[in-house]
Every structure is written in structure tokens, then in C-alpha cells.
Nucleic acid binder design. Sequence first.
DNA 1: TCCATTGTTTCACCCTATGAAACCCTGTTA
DNA 2: TAACAGGGTTTCATAGGGTGAAACAATGGA
Lengths: 247, 247
Amino acid sequence: MEEEKRTVRAVERALDVLLCFTSGHEWGLTEIAGRIGLHKSTVHRLLATLEDRGFVTRNMDTDKYRLGLSVLELSANLSRSDDPSVVLLPEMERLRDQLSETVSLYVRDRSERVRIQAVQSTQAIRRVATVGARLPLSVGASSKVLLAFAESGVRGFIMADPAWPSQLDRIAFVKQLDEISAAGYATSFEEREPGAAAVSAPIFNRSGKLVAALSVSGPSNRLTPDRMHEHAPAIIEAAHRMGTILG
Amino acid sequence: MEEEKRTVRAVERALDVLLCFTSGHEWGLTEIAGRIGLHKSTVHRLLATLEDRGFVTRNMDTDKYRLGLSVLELSANLSRSDDPSVVLLPEMERLRDQLSETVSLYVRDRSERVRIQAVQSTQAIRRVATVGARLPLSVGASSKVLLAFAESGVRGFIMADPAWPSQLDRIAFVKQLDEISAAGYATSFEEREPGAAAVSAPIFNRSGKLVAALSVSGPSNRLTPDRMHEHAPAIIEAAHRMGTILG
DNA sequence: TCCATTGTTTCACCCTATGAAACCCTGTTA
DNA sequence: TAACAGGGTTTCATAGGGTGAAACAATGGA
């Protein structure tokens, strides 16, 4: 049963240390050690290495660690001209101007989804979406899109994951996915966050493979269920246009 | 003479692999191995580990590696409310609108400087500055600012670095730094890049410590030496205002 | 078909990452 | 002032695991 691991333990641990900084911004050595369950001295050595290469720096006032400039340097090279999050930005802005609500772009990464791009509504009351956020695949309009239109097999694979919420009614959920698959879009109303609602449509590339979910989200008193269904055609069309932009 | 290293070799190597992606965006395994001088199988294991944690993914068409979404996730947490690159952005935009040229913000990182923020000029012919770029400390207006106003000791420390260009006339350079220190700002004219010029002024925090260099750059036919000296007071004032914003 | 190139896997060796414990600091309490 | 607590740092023997040579597989030109 043992899956052979072809990875390097010390590196895994160092990367786990780095990933601590995805929540919260400053950590002490002991905090990190406690969080990933390693010895102080081990974490100390890993942090020294990360610091040497500029992936973390320490706040000399508090003596705590924070992300370093190498991360900035890397992220600058993350966005490439063939990257959906760059290519599709103008279309996202156009949709934002059309509907006056925040527009986000999600991709699936294993058993989660990641918001790879976002343009904010300009209204006083608006949904604020941060780029890079990692969210569960079990709730939210874009989650349902990413599952409903995924290649055959992944739906079952994801829902078999031990991390999948067991209290969720599977039968009803699958039924919902099939409905979404037929309708061509998904909605969510105060599903993940109270007071928020969203409509989402799939983006397919030229060969018909799902690459991302386009999502429009806002306060639930503006994005009522009726209003969301009114918006749906515009969103689907934008998603279709985006698909043709991609290779 | 041997400086005791308290770092983890495997992690160092893995981070070096990651740092390959700061230049160029896609790399094959063998390319990377050649570049850092490691064995194919070693790099293979490191890449497998990085991939497992989402720091790299592979383009399934070309089989080459590229940066993964974990980097995006980290970079989202880089920018904090107490981060100069966020807090000073509005002031930078104001200065850009005032002078109609590209405005950049640099900090020193060891023996280099890093552009941590930039707002682009809107003119047709303009300097384009990418955030995250890492540049030498030996040329450019902001380099000279970062050295001239640094705490005592760092100037000598940097110039003693083996990476410091030996062909540079040290006497003349130090004299220039002293002049800059007296004038309160620095200029460069086609110094690092032909056709480009820049003016730069220091930003100090409340306790008088140098935190960054504010730099205005553009094409050398617009930013003539005369014009640069005309602009200097506005830049110095903006830098001063920014200093008061910081803790 | 053959060759060239790249990614993958195996395996024995010995380097090196590990964690317990001791140590050093700085600030706080009695 | 001493005693304490809480962090970060250093040391060191041990064995666990990272390493690289070499063999292997999978491509895709020529």
C-alpha cells in the first residue's frame, strides 16, 4: 500500500515552513516549529537556509520571520504573456464595467481552487477578492463549475478525497452538478460567506478542455437569485470570448 | 578561514532550482541541472518535491517546468499594510502624474537593489519598470542614493564585496557619493541602459534611517541633465512626504 | 532504422540532516 | 537582585536518507 515517495524530506519541510506564510504574515521560530511539528533546531536550520537565499527575512524589531524579496522576484516571473491571468484581464475588466461587480478567475489545483486573477467592483459596497487565495472545492459557484465541467474522473477523484466534507449530501450534490452542466453556469447564494453571492461560468480552451471558472460576485442584496440569472447570459458570453483568446 | 555553514544543503539546492525561474520562465530538467551544476537525478528529485508542494508545475505539452501556484499564494501575502510598496503607492502615482514619467521604488538587499514598486508613465515613449527586478548597486541613480545615505559601514562593506566591479574608479565614486550626500539627490544619464536617465532621492523613516530610494526615470532626450535638476526638488519633497507616512 | 536527447528509476555508499540537550540571551516577576 | 520564563542558538553522536553513477525508458528527428 505504501506509495513510494521520490521526494526529499528536508526540502519538503522547508517548503512547509514557507507555506506557513500563506496565513498570517509574521512567525516566530517556535511558532513555526509547533505548527508543523518539528524540532526548534531543525526549523532554525531551515529558516537559516531560506534566509540565506532571500526567501525569508527577519523583522529586526520583533525577531520574527517574514517573507523575503526572492518571493517577489519569483512572482514577477509568474505572470507570463501566455498566462490566462494576464491575457484575460482586459476581458475581465470589461465584464466588471458591464455588471459593476467584482470579477474573479479560478483554476482547480488538486482538491482546491485558487483565485488567479480578480478585478474589483468600484461600488462603495463590494465584494473584495484577493488574488492567490486558496479555497475549498466543495462550496461556491466557481467550485461547482470547476467540478461540473471537469474531465471525466476528476469529479469522483475529488469527492473521494478524505478532505471532502463528509456531512455533505453526495446524491444531492451530484444532482446539482448535473443541472449546472446542463444550464452552463452555476450560482451560489450565501453559500460560503454570509452576505455574498456569485455566478460562475466555465472557460474552455480551443480543444474543449476546462481551464478556469469565471465568476462574478457581490453582496447578496444586489445579486439576488433573480438578478443572477439575468446576468448569466452576459457572463457565459464573456467566458466564451475568453476561451477563444486562449490557445 | 572556513565559515561554518548552518544551512541545509538539499534545501539550498532546491531554492537554487526555484531561483532559476527568475530569468526565463520555462526550464527543462537537464537545463536546470546544467545551470546549477547538479546531477540530473538530484534535480529530478528536487523538482518532484517542489512540484508536490505546488511551487512548480509542468507544462504537459513541452514537459518543461514552470512556477506553480504556491508562489502566487505566497506573493499575495508579501504585500502587507505596513509594507512600503503598498503604503507609498498613492504618493508614487501622484508624483507620476506630476512629472509624467515612470516612478520606481528601490530597497537595498545585501549587495544588490530590488525594485519593490513601480508606476508607469502614460506617455507613448516611456521607461517600463518591472516590479521585483534585481539590479546591481554599482550603477544607476538609485544605487548611488542607497549607498550615499546608507548607515555608516555598509558603503565600505558593499565596495569590499568581491562582486564589486574592479574596473570602477573607487576614489571618483566615493567623491561622487559625498557630493550626492550633500546635494540630497542623485542623477544618472545613460549609465546602466543607453537612452535612459533617472533622478533619485532617499526616503528616511521617522528615526532617520534610510529605507528606500525613490526614483524617476525616462528617456534621456526628455530627462536631460538640466531637466533632471529642475525635477529634483519635487522628487525630494515627495520622498520626504513618503518618509512621514512610514512608521 | 538508428541515433541523440531527455526524463525516470535503481542502488550501494557514506555524507549530512536530525533532535535531545545544553546554552545564551532578553525581558518580567517577586 | 535573583529567579524565572520565553524565545533563539549551538553542540554532537547517531542512523537515516540524500547522493550520483549507471542503467533504463520514452521520445523524436535524421
